[in-house]
């Protein structure tokens, strides 16, 4: 079964063709990097306009790359829940039009559910139940994944997501956008123990996060150094900041693993591409005899292949959306019952 996936929840216009929920025939991603650099982040209306401009070309490119036409496609899956409202709308409008014109089943997917499947696409041996840390510029949560249908949200960020903190600190330090890869690279030349930044909520008993205070601490320290005309050890600041973030993420995730008594950890979302996060998780999991899985780098950030994979699983379970499918920007995780998402 060939599923066409469409993802436009934030700043990536993406379409993919995935066979049987596991073989990626294409995964076209048009990132809005030029706009992000210009505005220093995602501006919802600007991003939505770019989606409307690109969506048709991206879908065509995904079909061409897969060597398929719409006649070969068996179903359409689209991110309809969680994201920027105007951005989500473009993807859903495209998906329902294709579904209507080609008489194809349509399925709306929660963006976070997609990220869980990104890791399954990369690691077919990733088993259930497991604890999943999914973290990007837009979300930051720990989930207990009993199986793909049953997700328990254990905790999430109370303010900034980790990726957002990376972006904002990078912007303040005068580094490029997006901040994650830039800080990751710069940190390799720095001393991660040079500064002792706070690890907010690291030891709290819940599984929630807060990165806003850490971000402010870094920015205040940077301002003090400038005011004192002191040297600005950018690499050391970046490395110490990154360490504070990943240390907190790893510690809290492993505590959740302990509570649930599982042996498997899944780390996904844009920040799962961070090399220090991967290193710390691998070290800690090895010590505790746990298995940890990360998506391929190409599947860490937003992409439509993961949406197609999630869609395949739902369609196999007999679920579909009708042509009145709408978008739910703040939808909680869970079932397809759209009334509960309103």
């Amino acid at each position: 079964m060939l599923v066409l996936g469409i993802e436009t929840s934030c700043d990536e216009t993406s379409a993919a063709v995935v066979a049987d929920g596991k073989d990626i025939l294409s995964n076209t991603i048009a990132a809005q990097m030029d706009l992000l650099k210009k505005y220093g982040g995602v501006v919802p209306e600007v991003a939505a306009r770019r989606h409307a401009e690109l969506i048709g070309y991206v879908i065509k490119e995904a079909l061409d790359t897969a060597g398929k036409t719409l006649e070969d496609i068996n179903a359409v899956a689209v991110t309809s829940r969680q994201g920027l409202i105007g951005c989500l709308m473009v993807g859903v409008a495209a998906a329902k039009s294709i579904s209507y014109a080609r008489h194809l089943p349509l399925i709306g997917i929660h963006h976070i559910e997609g990220h869980i499947y990104a890791n399954r696409l990369s690691n077919p041996s990733l088993s259930f139940p497991h604890v999943c840390l999914t973290v990007s510029g837009g979300h930051n949560m720990i989930l207990y994944v009993q199986d793909p249908q049953h997700l328990e949200l254990m905790g999430s960020t109370l303010d900034d997501a980790a990726g957002e903190a990376f972006d904002k600190v990078a912007k303040f330090l005068g580094l490029d956008f997006p901040g994650g890869p830039v800080i990751d690279k710069l940190s390799k030349q720095g001393n991660r123990k040079a500064f002792s930044f706070p690890r907010p909520m690291k030891n709290s008993k819940d599984y929630d996060f807060s990165f806003s205070g850490l971000k402010t601490a870094v920015i205040n320290m940077f301002k003090d150094k400038i005011a004192a005309n002191a040297a600005l050890p950018l690499a050391d600041i970046a490395a110490s900041f990154q360490e504070a973030v990943v240390d907190t993420l790893v510690t809290k995730t492993l505590r959740a693993v302990e509570e649930k008594g599982v042996k498997t950890v899944s780390v996904t979302g844009g920040v799962s591409a961070n090399s220090r996060l991967r290193e710390l998780f691998q070290d800690a999991c090895k010590k505790k005899g746990l298995e940890v899985f990360f998506p391929k780098l190409s599947l860490c950030t937003d992409n439509a292949a993961m949406i197609a994979a999630a869609g395949y699983a739902r369609i196999m379970r007999g679920e579909t959306s009708d042509l009145r499918l709408n978008v739910f920007p703040n939808a909680p995780l869970g079932g397809l019952n759209e009334d509960e998402n309103r």
């Binding site: 939505a48 306009r49 989606h51 409307a52 969506i55 048709g56 879908i59 105007g86 709308m89 473009v90 409008a93 495209a94 329902k96 039009s97 294709i98 209507y100 014109a101």
Partner: peptide, 10 residues
């Protein structure tokens, strides 16, 4: 944005 996307994709 919705109408043009629907029109072009149809």
């Amino acid at each position: 944005k919705v109408g043009v996307t629907v029109g072009k994709m149809l």
